[in-house]
Design a protein around this nucleic acid. Structure first.
Length: 116
RNA sequence: AGAGUAAAUUGAAUAGUCGCUGGUAAAUUUUCGAAAGGAAUUACGAGAGGAAAGUCCGGGCUCCAUAGAGCAAGGAUGCUAGAUAACGUCUAGUGAGGGUGACCUUAAGGAAAGUGCAACAGAAAAUAACCGCCUCUGUAGAUAAGGGUUCCCGCAAAGCUAGCUUUGUGGGAAAGAGGAAAAACAACGUAAUUAUAGUUUAAGUUGAGCUUGCUCAAACUUAAAUAUAAUGGAGUUUGUUUUGACGAGGUAAGGGUGAAAAGGCGAGGUAAGAGCUCACCGCUGCUAUGGUGACAUGGCGGGUCAGUGUAAACCCCAUCCGGAGCAACACCUAAUAAAGAAGAUUAAGCCUGCUCGGUACCUUCUUGAAUUGCGUGGCUUGAGGUAGGCAGUGAUGUCUAUCCUAGAUAAAUGACUAUUUUAAAAGACAGAACCCGGCUUACAGAUUUACUCUUUUA
RNA sequence: GCGGGUAUAAUUUAGUGGUAGAAUGUCAUGCUUCCGACCUGAUAGCGAGGGUUCGAUUCCCUCUACCCGCU
């Protein structure tokens, strides 16, 4: 099993957020951009400092990353994905189950599930 | 038992499965990359806090020259002694304030170096003197206003004769008045009321006489007039006494204000007063004793005791401070382009302003290009932790033994399951980012130690 | 992470130790057949908590929110 690739540079984030397609769940939003044929997906997570303080923000990041790992093998490759937390939603509602359902919805809409 | 005060500790535990970060060891692999370098596999053991937060102080470290000297400017601190690498921190004390108490709070130098400010109110807000209080001299006599009387007009109430009266009240006019018209006392004393006395007049009752409808008498009744007394008390009448507008001084007792009023309070004293004098208290100078010192206690003296508050107003005094910050800085690697202007000597520029001092062969300015990297170091052995001994009231220091305990860079601790503790189960505040010492702020619950007050029982 | 700045009415802003002013807005009244414009009046404020001071929007400290710069 391979390590997940992360987006790191600021210009990479800007590319995805400005040119990618927008999908949204109840609590999570996602921008997805196709980059042609490669064997990897790039993941990025961004949560603004207005949502919550540092502990809560880290907790949300972990939830998203953990869920992504579970789903990762069933997803088509060659995409850059950036997840955002909706600003209006209270950060205290975040939990593992909520994030899992939202992520399913988003990938269904984007037709990224492999095979099925 | 209840109510508190201070200090300290803790900030769920255990097991399993999957996953993350870096460390050590071993070899192997790599078509990851231009390179520097990185990645993957296996095993072992490690992996967020008391505040990691705020970034409010101080220090290490790095660069600016090695961070220098003096002056100016700016900033910080401000009772004493000590601790410390240093501090605006801490400890032990002193003074002041609060609490019944355990205990708590305290930016606490200088207002007599100078400048400024103190709204409103108040006589006056800082070289106090407006009213008041007191003394003295002279006695010249202005204006205005007011009270009372009379008249006129308006309003209100009461009465009845229903348009007049009375009472109260407001306004206006007239006459007349002083040197003190003011106050006190005495005299005089109008109107009105009451009482008494006799007289006069009128009417009535009774009796007598006779002329029978007139006269007389006494007493009485009523009414009117008069006199006396009392009440009343207009008055610009009379007399006596007191006070004294203005002027010249004395004084700071008292004066509604204000946050603050010129030491407090009592007695003496005085024309009135006053630290004017005295006792006590406060303030202050000198001095003795105790203490390292802040200061405390005592003694002797000081009455222009000379001055309100404000310095977290300017300021003065004392002490301290060069600047920037790990996105500092160093190294490796890729790519690359220069052009124009100025300066040439003990000299531009730089070292924050000035002077000194230092630095040198290229430097400075303008325009333009470029500024790459899942790069490396800095990076965690340190003013370190734990336990014990010794010194010290304590902060702390020192000695011995022992331990190595995160080092990321879109950034690591999560997900699921079971059990335990618990009334209830993770649900408080909260995520290291170069490292330390503090301060400040946030915080569910639990525990321990010492002490205080109240009540009850023995 | 480091450094710097701001906060006054619903909005834009003055002010500075003595109790906060203007414009726009909102509401009411007048004018008009009605609306607008205009006239008159009202309305609502110093980010929060402590301290210094007789008195703080202003001076000092702490906190909160917002904004800007530096790979």
């Amino acid at each position: 099993m391979k390590k997940t690739k992360m987006l790191k540079k600021n210009y990479e984030f800007k590319e995805v957020l400005s040119r990618g397609k927008y999908y949204s769940g109840e609590f999570i939003e996602a921008f997805i951009k196709k980059t042609g044929n490669s064997d990897y997906n790039f993941l990025g997570i961004a949560i603004s400092s207005k949502v919550a303080k540092a502990v809560r923000r880290n907790y949300i990041k972990r939830l998203i990353r953990e869920n992504y790992k579970i789903v990762e093998e069933n997803i088509k490759t060659g995409n850059k994905i950036v997840f955002l937390w909706k600003k209006k939603k209270d950060s205290k509602d975040a939990s593992f189950a909520v994030v899992r359902e939202d992520m399913k919805k988003i990938f269904d809409k984007a037709d990224l599930f492999r095979g099925n």
